[in-house]
Design a protein around this nucleic acid. Sequence first.
DNA 1: CGCTCAGTTGAGTCATTTCAAACGTTGTGG
DNA 2: CCACAACGTTTGAAATGACTCAACTGAGCG
Lengths: 266, 266
Amino acid sequence: MGVPDTQQALSAFITRLRGHSPLDDGDCRALMALPLREIALTARQALVRPTQKSTHAWLVIEGLIGRISQTDDGLRQIQALSAPGEIANVAAMMLPARLCGFEAVTRSRVVAISHDALRGLAADHPAIAGALMREALLVKEILAQWLLNIGRREARAKVTHFLCEMAVRYQAANRGGATSFVLPMTQEQLGEALALTPVHINRTLKALREEKLVEVVRHEVRLFDWPAVVAAAEFDPSYLRLAEQEEGVARSTASAATRIAPAGAR
Amino acid sequence: MGVPDTQQALSAFITRLRGHSPLDDGDCRALMALPLREIALTARQALVRPTQKSTHAWLVIEGLIGRISQTDDGLRQIQALSAPGEIANVAAMMLPARLCGFEAVTRSRVVAISHDALRGLAADHPAIAGALMREALLVKEILAQWLLNIGRREARAKVTHFLCEMAVRYQAANRGGATSFVLPMTQEQLGEALALTPVHINRTLKALREEKLVEVVRHEVRLFDWPAVVAAAEFDPSYLRLAEQEEGVARSTASAATRIAPAGAR
DNA sequence: CGCTCAGTTGAGTCATTTCAAACGTTGTGG
DNA sequence: CCACAACGTTTGAAATGACTCAACTGAGCG
């Protein structure tokens, strides 16, 4: 395996785009030809602060990039996360974000891609324009699910739903093992994503561990019983739009969730 | 005044688009030429159910259209609202929504515009393509603020923030009086938007009334003290992207919020 | 005039937060 | 290699914001 490199992340990203948008060889070559200057970030390092204007999107090579907003009294809310093979702040190329910043959740490596470069690419390749657009809207769909999750579920379901989502996303980027994956967030940051206090995150994880559903040890998530976790989370992965080109067959919640489960996770 | 009509709503929508996107006369004429067959909806009538595929966007003439998701045990979350002069379900023309439905919050009138028609318009008029795109992303920005609001603020701030946002949006569509506007939602629906129980919405509104900050009587919202309400809500309207073409001057939270206040609201 | 739906209120309960302290791990410099 | 500092995790006890349940009131409509 070795250290994940930029090419690997870029091709994971292209695979991701192809999950929802048709791209021909020319489009892919154009994407692969993007200049890749890598940037290393320390944990919690800001890429853009809430009021600043951003000029770049960031392809995540390693680590986790978060989109963050906060209330006046300093309560932070992580609104979105970008895992390796995903791109943060694409939407800003069309409509710059206000009142939100981006920062590395953990020590990370990213490739900065200027919005100008993306706009140029989009101008030359209509299919890429569409793909980036859909990518931005996909982030919106995820956000919408987070709203339901944060607004309407209790802690146990919030946490399991989040873990299910991340499991599927990490697996899609080839960063997930059969029954486990590395989620480089502290419990405090989990709380910032799920709108819970770190203390309550801790207690909830403890309860899940005791139930033998999930274990999180040293940022390594282990899903002991995927179907049971999916049930606890009411998780239906269809909003993630992975593993399907266009509207496919209608499928039941359970079957879809089970299908995407890591092989051997039973 | 009289009964608001479709032309009025359509031109409000165009004004709205022009708030974030440059449109020339040809673009506007193309938009004005859209076929407008009006549909009447009863309160709570569904436009698309959560699993169905949608084929239309809806320009709201009168009433309120909500995007809704729900948990398996029936807890509902309103993820977005479209007021008169706004358009619901634009994003689906690029990426169809999963797991969410659309329905009329109150008795409403809308104009259905097929995604095909919108795509055609976008193909012929690049500026319209961009404007619709930005409109979809603007919905995403609002969603992101709702996530912060629902996740991180307590009831009093949730409610006031929501009312501030709606006040600004209604005013932008010329549906807001100086110090009041009509918000056709029940307290139960307010709860569904803000992730609170109707009972708690009721108590929160009562407290705000007693504080002489806000009054909601028979769906009519009266903001007694705009600056105080803005302060209670920590409301900064810049995410709504109204009243500015492109990145203008930097401005302070307070001044921006005050500026947008209805004239005479002191 | 009675029916239905929305708003209002009270009392008790529960999930989550707050505050505070202890513990474990990791990395660093002496 | 050890000591220490910094950080993250774990736990307990008390406080609280929001929920539940249940009843009552008021407004709109046929």
